[in-house]
């Protein structure tokens, strides 16, 4: 049995959410959505865990603090500047450097983490992508067995899809 892709578009976020919920309940195939805005409702309906990018930001932040400590302590020991016999390491100013590097590396890890996890840069578009999905339409692409296609199509239509097409029928726009 071959797998096919069914592409549907919705004018309304709520209808898209409803379709996602029904697809999840019916457990047919796997699917992904396209939306013009970061929709928390869709994210909630799909029910994936929180993005792991937060761990990357944390790792970046920690490595920033460690880098800050390494360069401040390291360079102080390399160039021992005796300021009136006071302790060699001046912790309060080091905090400033550690803080700045924490933010710097945390941000850089976060930015490149998003790119890596979301698969950009890329030159290939996901099957079913349509320019309208960036403008004002919400899309769901379901990949399922051919035998289940009719059921999926009727589910999408019942949820209020404006258009439901199979991948082989979809015309490039």
């Amino acid at each position: 049995m071959s797998t096919i892709a069914i592409i549907s578009s919705f004018a309304d976020e709520t209808q898209c959410v409803q379709a996602v919920e029904e697809l999840r309940a019916a457990q047919v195939g796997d699917f992904n959505t396209f939306s013009p805005i970061p929709s928390h409702k869709i994210e909630h309906a799909i029910g994936r865990s929180k993005s792991p990018v937060r761990w990357l930001v944390l790792a970046g932040g920690i490595s920033g603090v460690l880098t800050g400590l390494a360069i401040t302590i390291g360079t102080t020991y390399e160039w021992r500047l005796n300021a009136g016999g006071r302790p060699l390491l001046s912790w309060p100013p080091f905090i400033v450097i550690c803080f700045e590097l924490m933010v710097l590396l945390g941000g850089i890890f976060g930015f490149f983490g998003v790119l890596m996890l979301s698969g950009v840069p890329t030159t290939t578009m996901a099957p079913g992508y349509d320019g309208r999905f960036g403008e004002d339409r919400f899309g769901i692409v379901v990949r399922c067995d051919e035998a289940e296609a009719a059921r999926v199509e009727s589910m999408l239509k019942e949820s209020g899809a404006e258009e439901v097409v199979r991948e082989d029928e979809a015309q490039p726009r």
Binding site: N32, F34, P36, V53, V57, G61, V114, S118, T124, M125
Partner: peptide, 22 residues
Amino acid sequence: GWQGTDRQWRHYSMAYLLMAGL
């Protein structure tokens, strides 16, 4: 190659929030 898939938005929203926090 941004397409606005749920996977992309999920990471994007989280990172945007954290970067605002930083």
